[in-house]
Design a protein around this nucleic acid. Sequence first.
DNA 1: AGAATACTCCACCAAAAGGTTGAGGCCCTA
DNA 2: TAGGGCCTCAACCTTTTGGTGGAGTATTCT
Lengths: 208, 208
Amino acid sequence: MDELIQIMVVDDHHIVRQGLVALIGTLPDMKVVAQASDGSEAVDLYRVHRPDITLMDLRLPKQNGVEAITHIREEFPSARIIVLTTFDGDEDIYRALQAGAKGYLLKGMNADELTDAIRTVHGGKSRIPAVVAERLAERMGGPSLTGRELDVLKRIVGGRSNKEIASDLFISEATVKTHINSILSKLGVNDRTQAATTALQRGIVHLD
Amino acid sequence: MDELIQIMVVDDHHIVRQGLVALIGTLPDMKVVAQASDGSEAVDLYRVHRPDITLMDLRLPKQNGVEAITHIREEFPSARIIVLTTFDGDEDIYRALQAGAKGYLLKGMNADELTDAIRTVHGGKSRIPAVVAERLAERMGGPSLTGRELDVLKRIVGGRSNKEIASDLFISEATVKTHINSILSKLGVNDRTQAATTALQRGIVHLD
DNA sequence: AGAATACTCCACCAAAAGGTTGAGGCCCTA
DNA sequence: TAGGGCCTCAACCTTTTGGTGGAGTATTCT
């Protein structure tokens, strides 16, 4: 190991950054060269430091993790980014992987898992747990919501009635019902309340 | 400062513990004497180490934070516990404060806020943000759900219909409707979907 | 004992939501 | 250009949900 692996840490929680820095500080072959606390800062600092590896939380202010990953990889297609997340089963994980993330870690991981992932991804390989890979495949095959259906679903979660959704989106209530029908069947649920909770559970929409 | 403030850190995320330890390690007047990753371990380690201050996450495996706080303060009424949480507006915060927590911090805090809180609580005072104190007062005054209403609300969040809830709880559908009526008015919402999402938002129930 | 609270249930009604079928317009791609 | 996906809308029907008012029982607190 001649050269240290240069790492950027992106997380809005000071403590988590501190933890990652502390953890990485104990390792001989890597070091943290930059820290960002939101998505825009992450993009800016990436340009400046060009880290070998970026550890990125998905829930961020200003610009979320997926957007940040997208922007970074537009400019630097070779960027190696590992997603860090608190929540298992979050839809955003899949979006992040599609946006070009090369690894995925839960915050509950231990030090070995972290360093493994960093070294693996730095070596040019991917580090995605089998379970996630499976679900990613499933998801690809599975039905995905259209843009309009997402609009409606978000408002269902927001507690809006069909009539309100109709006027929100400038469409008729009949159309709203049509969309809801396909949402329910695509999500495999029976009513709007189930749609709301499974959408939250799968991370398709967030409460923020 | 003759004696170091002895601190126990309780969090299931290794990284967060590491971050807290690292942060506290830079301070001259305090040190971490124990770390626990779940509620039961926290209770056990409290008995052994009797820390001056306990920093406790609320979402924990085995025994959640509120339970752990309750148990610790049953045995050691003078225990000084500061709640650490990721989520603002979580109902559990209020439960934790009622269970005897003396302070409350979001994980997004900075180092100064943390040390402030630790020193304040160690000095025997409380450290609860004005906003939270207000809402705590509101909550006390505000209507609270009865046990049965909670049973029903949980099932609403679970996506069950009135009929299903009735058979779940061995009561008639009419009774379910009665409960739902008071749930809706107590939560100040118009329908079950709103009830579900605001219950989740306020942390009255969780998806887990 | 009386009041308050929680839990149970009924009836009736109105509104909202969900299921089904069919159909026209738009845009993109094979 | 023909099909496919998406968005739009309509009519019709059934089921579910929510609103209102009343009522009986058990328990607990005063």
